[in-house]
Nucleic acid binder design. Structure first.
Lengths: 130, 130
DNA sequence: GCGAAATACCTTGACAGGCGAAGTAACAAG
DNA sequence: CTTGTTACTTCGCCTGTCAAGGTATTTCGC
């Protein structure tokens, strides 16, 4: 079951920055690496990917340069900037906070729903051992 | 620092369902409870909240009924349906998976960027104790 | 040698969720 | 009687994702 990047909305940029923090790379490779690292659970669509690059570049978080390979298709490499690293650090800490917050909101102990018969009497629920 | 709900996009529904899984409630109260549980880090905007209710109702995950209080403003209560509970369970497991995936993508050990002087020589980085 | 697949990039337009802004209405407190 | 709180509603904008389409080169099987 693949995750929709829609559930990760807003994190594509962070994911990309995190990849670039390790080493310069180009779109196609970054995408493959993301798929790989996520165990195939996340596959960014190209449109998503390249629009993220444009966004990151416009924000000054990455800079682009053409690779000089004399064989194969031309590659557009990206490099993370200092501001980009700052942004990444900020996003990572924000992700930790988001996790905490969402876990707090989603992990409350919950009573089982009470079943009632037609006269409003409670129907006992048999507890199943896990 | 309040979280942007944009980072939680797609989870508002789950958060609401999770609240309703505990007990029937109405918009204003649910919102206050969310703010409270999140330690003030998440405050859903009313437009967000009520459009979520409409969405959830149209999907059959919740049903609405008017409260019969004879004082104060009228309240529209919501109750989670059986399908809603199923959906909630699914969303919760999806959230766990999302967390795992994102953590896998964001938590790789990273080399510090190498600083170089004008002749390309490496500038040693002084390690700061934390 | 040729067609398919893989590599590699790019663009356009639609869609959906979050939100700013505004409105309605009842009641409480001062 | 004005301000604040409770409570709900609607309209239209913004932004990130994606479906669908395109270009160009190289590699591999047959």
């Amino acid at each position: 079951m693949a995750l929709s990047a829609d559930l990760l909305r807003g994190y594509t940029d962070t994911i990309i920055l995190n990849q670039l923090a390790e080493t310069d790379s180009y779109g196609y490779e970054i995408n493959k690496r993301i798929t790989e690292l996520s165990g195939g659970r996340l596959e960014l669509k190209e449109a998503t990917l390249y629009s993220a690059f444009r966004r990151l570049e416009n924000s000054g978080y990455i800079i682009a340069y053409w690779g000089d390979e004399n064989t194969g298709a031309r590659r557009r490499y990206y490099s993370i900037t200092v501001t980009g690293r700052d942004k990444l650090a900020e996003s990572l800490s924000q992700w930790r906070e988001t996790q905490d917050t969402l876990n707090a909101l989603l992990s409350q102990t919950r009573k089982a729903p009470v079943l009632r018969d037609s006269r409003g009497g409670e129907i006992p629920v048999i507890q199943v051992e896990e």
